[in-house]
Design a protein around this nucleic acid. Structure first.
Length: 629
DNA sequence: GCGATCAGCT
DNA sequence: CACAGCTGATCGC
């Protein structure tokens, strides 16, 4: 849970994710995502009154966060004070002191955070330096290198401070299986169950919070069905989610909730009370998404655990693991890192001390480390700028000349100052929305509503409109509506890492035309490639790359390579142990250089090399050997 | 009656 | 396997 007080040292006139106490006096508000622990004070009457007397104070967030926030009537009064911002579009904001008229300019960029729909990080660039507020986030290893706005040309931007989601910044949480691995396990479990008969149903025991939607979309896609949920209203303008959820109970996958749902399940009932028409009892299993973590040297990473006769836990995390956070920080090398969460059993002092090891001044002092097997392959072009000769090339590598960059920002500012609604509508016109109707009829006939419907709580966070419990027809209608209305862009919902491969390709094709693939309902998505089982060469590459740092950090081109903080504290990890790491932490982002006369290193050679490095011996570079600089 | 806070629960 | 949020009790205004 976030314990961030709401303000950053560098820019104390803005408040983020906290809206009470001193934050009442902020000149601008920022909401990273729509979870309650980041919304403290947001519905307060004091804040409401302040807004009524202010001409300049606004709340900035993503389009999706705005949509989710306004879906809850307690926050409806924000409507006229919210300014939704596009992802990855630098926007200049004037921070005005309304009593003195004094003003400060700041440029903010929203970066997708992979935590829940609409979740973003905020990158602030202004007179006090570049500051990154991460909100809550789940990044895989290597993700930071793929975010263009964290770069300036081929270099990583100079980040003064990171305000960090440190939920799992603790070696206990060394690794958490990746989204893909977790999803794969869940798909297998669900598939094995619901394929047995149409009476076999699954209840996804999800908590009352946003963040499971990508699970629903992937399950819906894989099994060509929709997931039963309590309400659709929050997704009414998000067709990419809407098409995979339904209020029609006649489906084999449920994520519905009820105050006594656990009790219901013990009595072999779904939270919605759905049963089979012919009286045949349903065969229900429950799957509870929970965070599972594994130690540094744990090989086994079972993502599904059976907890009862028909109960399972499935690995699922909204937050980055320790090693993912370390990868993120060692890439950015900020001057300061401030935790916004203290992991259970830790103190602020402990966490701050651990984070100091990841700060720039610490890593500058790190010892020399050899790089015998080449460098990380980055999706960003990572070569010195003097390699680029054409301007087009410069643009491709995002090495924007300052003037052009400024022009881009100006354009965005202009666009943003126009009505946000207009911005949204132009979006949905330019990019035809992806809409498809999945077929649940094949399983539908077996089910009938045998119980009265659940009473919906007046103040239920996720309801805001009359019930629409009429199944596919209603869904189709809503989807048609959403095509016409100003829907947020699909990119706002998920980062691409959260989408299945087929969704990725659709998202590309939908830029020019509506993809027909899901219309047919016949496509079998190729969800998982072999990426999770790297071959031996990749293992070697991973093994050694793990002890080197990222390539070419700014201003450090001629500095010695750095040693990773974890190895400084835990001792050097030998290749044989590294190989024990799960593929979940591996990546296909490694490249073995094509050096003439080179050969693939053998494990025993590597072992010897590491022993030498560990004992501080000099490593002699010989022709054909693996030692190199 | 409303809001803040905490314990307990999942 | 520890996140996010609900319910209910208590207290103060």
């Amino acid at each position: 849970m976030s314990s961030f007080a709401g303000r950053m040292k560098e820019y104390p006139t803005i408040s983020l994710d906290r809206f009470d106490r001193e934050n009442l006096h902020a000149r601008a508000y920022f909401l990273s995502h729509c979870h309650k622990d980041h919304m403290k004070g947001l519905k307060g009457p004091l804040l409401k009154r302040k807004l009524q007397f202010s001409r300049t104070v606004r709340l900035y967030c993503s389009f999706v966060t705005k949509e989710l926030l306004l879906n809850n009537r307690k926050y409806a009064f924000w409507e006229e004070y919210i300014v939704p911002l596009e992802l990855e579009s630098p926007t200049q904001i004037s921070l005005v002191d309304e009593s003195s008229g004094e003003s400060e300019e700041i440029v903010v960029t929203l970066l997708p955070a992979g935590h829940c729909p609409g979740s973003v990080m905020f990158l602030f660039e202004g007179s006090r330096g570049n500051v990154l507020y991460t909100g809550d986030f789940r990044f895989a290893v290597g993700d930071a290198s793929r975010i263009e706005h964290l770069h300036s040309g081929s270099r990583v931007k100079d980040i003064q401070s990171v305000y960090l989601d440190s939920t799992f910044y603790d070696p206990r949480f060394y690794q958490i299986p990746t989204r893909e691995v977790c999803l794969s396990g869940i798909l297998e479990l669900v598939g094995n169950w619901i394929s047995q008969s149409s009476y076999h149903v699954v209840w996804l025991n999800c908590k009352a919070a946003y963040g499971y939607e990508y699970l629903f979309t992937n399950l819906g896609e894989e099994f060509n069905t929709q997931i039963h949920v309590n309400s659709l209203s929050m997704f009414k303008r998000m067709p990419e989610i809407l098409s995979y959820v339904t209020t029609d109970r006649r489906t084999q996958i449920h994520a519905c909730r009820h105050p006594k749902d656990e009790e219901y399940f013990q009595g072999n009932r779904l939270p919605c009370g759905c049963t089979a028409t012919d009286g045949t009892p349903l065969r229900i299993i429950s799957i509870k998404p929970s965070t599972m973590w594994f130690g540094e040297r744990t090989k086994k990473t079972n993502v599904i655990i059976k907890t009862g006769a028909s109960s399972f836990r499935a690995c699922f995390s909204f937050h980055s693991s320790y090693s993912e956070i370390k990868d993120f920080l060692s890439y950015l090398k900020p001057v300061n890192i401030y935790p916004s969460v203290i992991p259970i059993g830790r103190t602020l002092t402990e966490v701050s001390q651990m984070l100091k090891l990841m700060c720039r001044n610490q890593s500058d002092q790190a010892a020399f480390v050899y790089k015998p097997l080449g460098v990380l392959k980055r999706s960003r072009v990572e070569r010195p700028t003097y390699d680029s000769d054409s301007e087009e090339d410069l643009f491709d590598s995002l090495d924007l000349a300052p003037v052009r960059r400024k022009m881009m920002i100006q354009e965005v500012i202009k666009a943003t100052r126009q009505s946000p609604q207009k911005a949204a509508s132009s979006l949905s016109e330019e990019e035809p929305l992806l809409v498809a109707v999945t077929d649940t009829q094949s399983v539908a006939h077996n089910y009938v509503d045998c119980t009265e419907s659940n009473d919906e709580d007046e103040d239920n966070e996720r309801e805001a409109e009359p019930k629409l419990d009429v199944g596919n027809e209603a869904t189709k209608e809503k989807m048609e509506e959403s095509k016409k209305s100003n829907s947020p862009k699909w990119e706002d919902f998920f980062t691409t890492e959260m989408l299945s491969d087929s969704q990725k390709s659709q998202s590309q094709s939908c830029c020019s035309t509506t993809s027909p693939s899901r219309m047919t309902g016949s496509q079998t998505p190729d969800l998982f490639s072999d990426e999770e089982t790297p071959n031996n060469e990749e293992n070697f590459s991973l093994t050694l790359s793990a002890s080197q740092n990222t390539d070419l950090p700014d201003t450090e081109l001629l500095q010695p390579e750095q040693e990773r903080g974890d190895e400084r504290t835990t001792g050097l990890i030998l290749p044989s142990e590294r190989e024990e790491l799960s593929g979940s932490q591996a990546s296909s982002d490694f490249d073995i250089p094509c050096t003439p006369e080179s050969k693939v290193p053998q494990p025993d050679e590597l072992f010897q090399l590491y022993r030498k490095l560990a004992s501080g011996e000099e490593v002699v570079i010989r022709k054909g050997s693996q030692g190199s600089v």
